[in-house]
Amino acid sequence: MRLAVIGAGAVGRSVVELAGEYGHEVVAVADSSSATVADGTDGRAGGIGVDPDAVVARKAERGIVGDADPDDALAADYDVLVEATPTTLGDAEPGFSHVTAALERDRHAVLANKGPVAERFGDLRAAVDDSDGEIRFEATVGGAIPAVSTVEDIEPGHVTAVRGVLNGTANFILTRMAAEGLDYDHVLAEAQDLGVAEADPSFDVDGTDAALKCVILANVLSFGAVDDPDAAREFTLADADVSGIRDVPGSALRLAAEDGRTVRLIGEATGETVRVAPRLVPENGTLAVSGTQNIVQIETTHAGRLNISGRGAGGPETASAVLGDVGRLE
């Protein structure tokens, strides 16, 4: 498949680097201010795509991916558009327009950007209905963990709930607080030094990121369980009941530990509700994954309970989910 990769952060760059290993060719790459588009001459020997090493090196050295305009990448001759720009809320732009631009040309889109799938799922479905292209978004939930495709394999109508630990930053902080008996502020500073938490950690520690993932799962469950999309309930972040971990005191974790329990930021999605909150779980239980690990637990009507844990973030991990989606579109 020929890929146009929009967004050159950790995920976008990893997709560019790894696409060849999966048998795909990157024909265009764009970041917010620049682009490079393969013209059949400046690519690798014998290939039609752009040179991945050159794109990544240029981004690292000069902060741009090429001399072309970002719109040129959107207009390139690709089969699949990979939307890997930063997640935005509300109208989910510019990611939403990138995806619909691909669908209008009857091309596929694979999203690593949570915004369009969490905030405008109904609009996306409508755009897909009018197109010969499809969308996939495995990378938006749980990084490397195949959460969406597992739910699809089981069939959403036979999944009663999906829950889990879906934010590595919050999980790292809770794990360290419990292990070291330290307070939130201390552990947050450590996480920021290690690059596990952003300078502004709000998105992670207030539960927004986990909530977006659960909203996406709720949409998958809701739309997947009915034949007529008009009958499905659409979820957005506004439908989620969210509380974060910012004010959880160290003493609460100590009291939990005394009783063989611990606290994890757990997200839960059904076809009716979305909830993210710190919850008490058994200290050595399945959901009490450590550090930046994520886990997705799927509750089914006929197949019992499934647990999948793994890395919920990271460039190559998330790119592997993106490229898995590209493979499913072939």
């Binding site: 609460a252 909150a277 919850r279 008490l280 637990q297």
Partner: peptide
Amino acid sequence: VEPLTGVDA
């Protein structure tokens, strides 16, 4: 901080 009820995680 509520427990996850019905889930013997």
